[in-house]
Design a protein around this nucleic acid. Structure first.
Lengths: 214, 214
DNA sequence: GCAAATTTGTGATTGTTTTCACAAAGGGCG
DNA sequence: CGCCCTTTGTGAAAACAATCACAAATTTGC
């Protein structure tokens, strides 16, 4: 008999906790496919290199999902995590900048596998981009950004434009109502505080490795 | 009169410090292009959203680079940071898995701009990959991995293979002597502790944003 | 060449995150 | 059905990270 959720909400959950929830959720997805019924915090932690207490504390941020002496019901916990992470509905994503990197992102299978819906791409040279991309995601001229977003709700904008454009594009997507940005451009952007921004800085990761091999 | 480096080494520097050094280094690169001679810790911090004390503490891990009452000589500090980060020589990178994402990575301009040298790509279907990629980086069959690496020193391996292959590929590059891995595949890998691994998990970033927009 | 103004480098402090450790809860086996 | 074993949930402790605050060093301007 699965335990209840509880509407525990908004107590400034650290970003690191959210990322780990996401990892837990993925492990649970695998377990469910393997028809595993239950898992303990120790087991879940071991698969990701985390302490069992950390797993329990992370989950405790959102309620009590476990059964003492037993562990967690895989399917039940997964359902709860998906709901917490906002993945119990389709999350709508757009991409701006369908260049080299953007082309890969727009058809990246990992996104769709995790239940994200890539709606449209936007590019300054849409013809060239369309040729480059092998996917059914339509690519529009970046001028159509506002008119396309208008009305349709877009959850997340992924940015992969040239560095010189990044601030102006960020402002445009924010003005169009987008509340979350995933930025692949190695430059800070200034946005209102309620807009969530994540940076993925590929060169930075390489540089941090470079330190250890020198 | 620029201060000295000092051979300060190995006191378990947190990864987060290294990443910030990398960010500092990039700002300094820009400043140098603008012919700015000096910068204060407060100024450097402001550009990245960090506290000035943090900037100074980070730098203090590796020596005394500043001049009290003056600040830091841009060119001098940059040189020191590049040396600390192991960027004062060419860092040699290979890519394994030249699929959708790998194709973008192999010719990603951000890497070369930061001074990394993409040596070769390796693929199970090298012909298809070669057609897909518009860059001069040669692409070999993944069977040639060991023979190519042999002798030639490779600093970092970037992995973008299918999830099912990841552990076996990781073991092969480690066996071939690679000491650092940048893994784009959303799966943990088991490697000897002296091998540095960084994970870039694109779907994870989207999921953490999804939490905030739900 | 001296005094005022800066800005560094760093010990002390505060805040955050992780780990420990254990009481309480529940399952499972005899 | 009852006892033992496992595992949760969580306060307390430890480890880690960021910020404060100030003495010491140096520049700048007069």
């Amino acid at each position: 008999m699965p335990p209840t959720d509880g509407e525990a909400e908004r107590k400034i959950i650290p970003q690191a906790v959210i990322k780990r929830l996401s990892l837990y959720s993925r492990i649970l997805q695998d377990l469910e496919l393997e028809n595993v019924e239950k898992i303990s915090s120790a087991d879940l932690g071991r698969r990701l290199g985390f302490n069992s207490a950390q797993v329990r504390k992370d989950l405790a941020c959102f309620g009590q999902f476990g059964v003492p002496g037993f562990g967690y019901y895989v399917s039940d916990l997964r359902k709860n995590l998906r709901s917490i992470l906002g993945k119990d509905r389709t999350v709508r994503v757009i991409l701006i900048g369908v260049g080299n990197l953007g082309s890969a992102l727009i058809s990246y299978h990992g996104f769709t596998k995790q239940g994200f819906k890539m709606m449209w791409g936007f590019e300054a040279q849409p013809e060239a981009a369309t040729q480059r991309v092998r996917s059914e995601v339509p690519i529009y001229h970046v001028d159509e950004l506002e008119s396309k977003i208008q009305g349709e709700s877009v959850d997340i904008a992924v940015l992969a434009v040239p560095a010189t454009e990044i601030q102006s594009i960020a402002e445009r997507v924010v003005a169009a109502g987008v509340k979350a940005i995933l930025n692949f451009v190695p430059a800070r952007i200034e946005v209102p505080e309620e807009v969530q921004v994540r940076y993925v800085d590929l060169a930075l990761e390489l540089e941090s490795l470079s330190y250890y091999v020198r």
